[in-house]
Amino acid sequence: MNDLAIRTHSLSKRYGDVRAVETLDLNVRRGEIYAFLGRNGAGKTTTIRMLLGLVRPTRGEVEVLGRRIIPGESSVFRRVGYLVETATAYPNLTVEENLDIQRRLTSAPKSAVSDSIDRLRLGPYARKRAGRLSLGNLQRLALARALLHAPELLILDEPANGLDPAGIVEIRDLLQTLSTRGGATVFLSSHILAEVAHLADRIGIIHEGRLCEELDRAELLAKENPSVELVSSDNDRATALLEAAGFARIEAKDGLLRIFDAPGREAEVARTIVGAGLDLFSLATVKEDLESYFLRRTGGLAS
């Protein structure tokens, strides 16, 4: 059996002159949680639509659970749960009825509807029309729909959209449980990078349609890029003093000095500055979080 849940090869999509996705090679292993990060318009949703056969690739190919996806391919989606972009449902139907549509068309057992409602805590809204749900509950309904038939693969576009902080944690735990206990593969795109950092086994960063980096958890930790940040009474002089003392990677920005080769040598940094008669207002060792890393990789810090 193929150990990849998702495989794309040279996947590309153009809309006229616009390159939405360019030669994307993705390999998502079965059972892992793969986070797909990218800024708005980076190509995340187009990729997800191609994975689901909703959009035809201009070039390249997609395999989902070992089956090549061609437009209209449907049988493999019995094993796939998905949420594409914004959560939507039939507004004149109740939560139960919306889920019943999914149940019937995925051949799931009757109990799947109530199980799904319980799992996503939609009980109080089960008989409420979807058109009258709050954004958060509509998102829960979309997630309930995606999970209803116990899929092997979940493809979720911004699953935490519209959820409150408690809801975000709840969904994170749910996805983690599905992956670790149920063996489900989760492919998700998100803008909430802190959540992704907690959840993902691997992270792919897409920028301007191209996969610019792929990291596993260990690599992510290694990329935390620790540095010593300080504020002194004269940062220019402090920079000169530190360079003279052998620190080579110093960056000055917004009244702050960042010394990338200083972690572990904090006392030496402090002595150098204070010993020269400068005031040291603050000094701390910081690690770059995923958000900063992501923004730096995709050029977001330039602005």
């Binding site: 449907s74 998905y82 914004t86 068309l105």
Partner: peptide, 16 residues
């Protein structure tokens, strides 16, 4: 208009 086509067309039933 209600943006449910994306849900419907990826269901495991032939689109026809």
């Amino acid at each position: 208009s209600e943006r449910t086509a994306k849900n419907m067309l990826a269901l495991p039933a032939g689109r026809h």
